[in-house]
Nucleic acid binder design. Structure first.
Lengths: 241, 241
DNA sequence: ATGATCAATATTGTCGACAATTTAGCGAGT
DNA sequence: ACTCGCTAAATTGTCGACAATATTGATCAT
């Protein structure tokens, strides 16, 4: 998500670099959910002192990716279905707001770009039978484009940083369904772009909220049916607690 | 907002303690918006080393209260009307969600407590001619109660931590209007509680969103009319840029 | 007077060491 | 076998020092 060309020209501090590496390691499960983080071990692994590492841990805590307790240490958050659903609800209203504000603020070049993106996605769906549709990130992501078009900097920061990585964490760990809704999701995207292009702020918000809600309900359905093996394992854990 | 009794029994780390102190100093304007933060000066002022101070700065950055640039240092964020309005929009949809979820999840004792709070507020309004209505914080705050009743932990964290302090920063610095809408706001609160008590999730959300939107429009009106001296000074700054 | 250059000073980023706290392992007692 | 107490080791929190970078002020040239 940090795709700004300017940013790439600035030398990152060690703490920022380690923050990003740890975030990625947590999201892909290299550092498993629930596991204890040892500062000396991490410092050794990345070849740095504990000072900048602690700064990075501070930031990861602020992102809700880890929990820290004084004198005890840090651990990666436990994942739960409840938290996943909570995050979906929040994303629903925030992305609804993004669509509303995009319908107000979007520029013609941005609309053109959105249309082009949808055309490309249509091709992707045909070639991969829907498999690729939820794999794109950053500038190639439909949602990312809408959020940027909202021109609400704080909202962009909320959705494209903290919540984005939390969502990625759950998607990665829970192996979210990627192909079962491709055609429906694509159609919903088209309708959302129509509403945005028509500057229909109310409809854009409603359609985006429905779109996210449909994804949530789809996830809930699979959680409840136990189709996904990964989801079963987490379901069992949640029951034990 | 950190009113949990358990939390008070845990000895705070220096970095947490300094984080809270700096946050408060920024919010009340003791450290003015836009000003440069000197690590050596702050470390001397609080009598600590720069290590935990840097951790606290890391967290303040994550809260959007300061900005940090590698090798240059940290400064308190500049306040702008645009950012204030952005934050209002975000609060509108998130507090709307909180009201919706509270209408679903609230317990009878919580409702009883809300009614008691409203009765107390009615007395406050009569005694202080509305002046006290926006001064309560924490458990005495109407919004806080609704958010807690949503039972959405992540939403509670979002609204009661980051956004809460940002909003306080703007309220403190901009000297938000406190008495011009008291009676109307109180009536809106009553209607919201009615909807929540009736488990009418849609109405609760709509009414809460309208309530926040009315506050936003009230602020915008005063920003545009230049009634408030503090707001004028910030208006002038925004124009200069 | 203005702008460029350079050196001194200050600040930021990081390191390794020390103090405080927690954890893990072992032995003794029941 | 289980529990408790103790000690050593590990970890966490903080400190002060050093290296790298940025800022400031003085001097010189135009």
């Amino acid at each position: 998500m940090e795709k700004s060309p300017e940013k790439n020209l600035v030398q990152l501090s060690l703490s920022e670099e380690i923050f990003q590496k740890l975030r990625e390691a947590i999201i892909v499960g290299e550092i498993p959910s629930g596991s204890k983080l040892s500062e000396p071990a991490l410092a050794k692994r990345y070849g740095i002192s504990r000072g900048p590492l602690r700064e990075a841990l501070s930031r990861l805590e602020a992102c809700s990716l880890i929990e820290r307790h004084p004198n005890i240490g840090a651990s990666v958050v436990e994942l739960s279905q409840q938290r996943l659903i909570e995050i979906y609800h929040i994303r629903e209203v925030l992305e609804g707001l993004a669509a509303r504000q995009a319908a107000y603020s979007i520029t013609q070049p941005e609309i053109t770009g959105l249309r082009g993106l949808l055309e490309q996605h249509k091709v992707d769906i045909r070639q991969d039978n829907g498999h690729a549709y939820f794999q794109k990130e950053g500038d190639f992501d439909f949602h990312f484009r809408i959020i940027q078009a909202s021109k609400n900097d704080h909202l962009i920061s909320l959705l494209c940083n903290d919540l984005y990585y939390l969502h990625r964490l759950y998607r990665y760990q829970f192996g979210m369904p990627s192909s079962s809704r491709s055609n429906a999701a694509f159609k919903e995207h088209e309708n959302i772009v129509d509403a945005i292009e028509n500057r229909d702020v109310e409809l854009a918000e409603i359609l985006m909220r429905r779109h996210i809600k449909a994804s949530r309900l789809n996830v809930v359905k699979q959680l409840n049916s136990g189709i996904n093996d990964k989801i079963i394992s987490y379901t069992k854990k949640a029951t034990d607690k």
